[in-house]
């Protein structure tokens, strides 16, 4: 099984990779990718089913706070049934989206405001080093530069410092981060293609 999975991964990866550089493999690449996106969708569905299983077990075992798990399972199944019956774009499903999903997520995101402020205030109490100092300085500059006065942008900060910091200094670091991430991704992908890493369960 380990050899089979490794062979599958390497073969599929090689053919998909060849599709980037050779038009001869574009069709096979598209076909494989089409299969892959279907499998990815099924994997997401399997994740939902796994969530049902986990919380269903909690309910059956009457664990602590299992009432919340019961609420979760019930709401999940009910929504799924509604979605299957009505389809997601149905008005009722839009009510669920706009009345529950979006407000909850947005509110949680709004609560992050206070949390971020709290963390920004307390950061330098925990550690005072170069990175933290520049972190706070750049954040404060962006805060201040993003604000405006009744008369317009804050002079110098909003018109010069903030753009210079975000488009030059921050872009230097961000580009370094992106290149670093890309290099790491490249190496990881190569290791998978060479069979060194087998995150699919081979080893």
């Amino acid at each position: 099984m380990r050899i089979l999975t490794a062979v599958i991964a390497i073969a599929v990866g090689s053919m998909v990779l060849l599709g980037y550089f050779s038009t001869s493999f574009i069709n096979i690449q598209t076909l494989l990718l089409n299969w892959a996106i279907i499998l990815a969708g099924v994997a997401a569905l399997a994740g939902v089913f796994n969530l049902i299983t986990v919380h269903g077990n909690k309910v059956r075992q009457a664990e602590k706070n299992s009432i919340y798990s019961a609420v979760l399972v019930i709401s999940l199944i009910a929504t799924f049934i509604l979605g299957i019956i009505l389809r997601p774009q149905h008005a009722v499903m839009q009510v669920i989206l706009n009345g529950i999903i979006l407000p909850v997520e947005s509110t949680l995101m709004g609560l992050l405001t206070i949390t971020l402020l709290y963390a920004g205030i307390r950061l330098l109490r925990r550690r005072v080093d170069v990175m933290s100092i520049f972190f706070i300085i750049s954040a404060v500059i962006i805060f201040l530069g993003s604000a405006t006065l009744p008369s317009g942008d804050i002079p110098l900060i909003g018109t010069l410092v903030r753009p210079w910091l975000s488009q030059i200094w921050a872009m230097g670091g961000a580009r370094g981060i992106l290149i670093g991430v890309a290099l790491g991704t490249l190496v990881t992908g190569l290791r998978v293609l060479f069979g060194v890493e087998r995150p699919y369960g081979g080893k």
Binding site: I10, L17, F21, A36, T185, P199, G201
Partner: peptide, 21 residues
């Protein structure tokens, strides 16, 4: 399931290699 996962991982590895590069 590891067969299908290997398929996904192999295709994803190729995609991220090419995309990153």
């Amino acid at each position: 399931a590891s067969i299908a996962m290997a398929f996904l991982v192999g295709a994803g590895a190729a995609v991220i290699i090419a995309g990153a590069l």
